[in-house]
Amino acid sequence: MAEEIDQQVYDDLIAQGKSERVATAKAKAAAVRQQKQQQAAEEPAQQAQPAASSPPAGDGGQAGGQAAATMAEAGVMTPEQRQERVRQALQAKQGETGGQAGEKAPSAKFAGQEHTHRLLAMVPPSGIQQIRGKQEDKVYTWPHLISSEFIALMAVTAGLTVMAVFVNAPLLALANPTNTPNPSKAPWYFMGLQELLLYFHPMVAGVTIPTVMLVGLAAVPYVDRNPSRRPENRKTIIVAFTVFMVFWAVLVMVGSFFRGPGLNWVWPWVDGLWFAL
């Protein structure tokens, strides 16, 4: 129905040299306008009908069906029709609940659709938002997620408290720019870079490699166009990333534990630990 166009208008416009797109749009608009006019003309007649044959209160089912039929014919309801339908439906409902006196069982009329909001019945189907998407297996945030978060939070706090009670943060002698300790080490998260410094020019190890790494990481989602998230479909990139991470972890470990004075190689269990957090 929505795709109906007024052929006459369309032909005229094409003849006038209008583009296909413009002609279609205008012809469609014309069709819709015509339809509305037609409806307006029919309406008084239709409205008179249910009013004339309006059944006594209580017999709402039939009238409701009639209204629905009218709606189906015209495609839309006028506000008056809608009001009338609501009134009749309410009357019918009152009659039923009155009869069942406080019983909670849903009436036969609504059986199987308890979860539908009843006002939806008044909305033309095209007016209902269609939501496509899978039903997902979900749980309530409260209490499920909140309680696990709380447990995690408590565990972290407990662990840190124990650590803070028993292990003191280091505080060495006052900073002295003229007395370079041997070895001088970066904090552990930069130890990989410091280790690279032993093999590369400082510009490469200190600037080029970190920049390339950050940009490379940021580019991952745009480079990896494989849509699958399943590990078995992503073997290559998983191996690549794992190699990268292990390589980095090894560099950090080596720099932290196996480098002593002069940043020469040491065995921590022989020469002791040259490492501070």
């Binding site: 280091p170 006052l174 900073a175 904090p187 400082p202 600037v207």
Partner: peptide, 22 residues
């Protein structure tokens, strides 16, 4: 911030590298 030998020299290692920015 603690301004001890550890702080000063660990940070120098890092900032020395930044000096090599082209």
């Amino acid at each position: 911030l603690p301004w001890d030998q550890l702080a000063l020299w660990a940070v120098s290692v890092g900032t020395d590298m930044m000096g090599y920015t082209p």
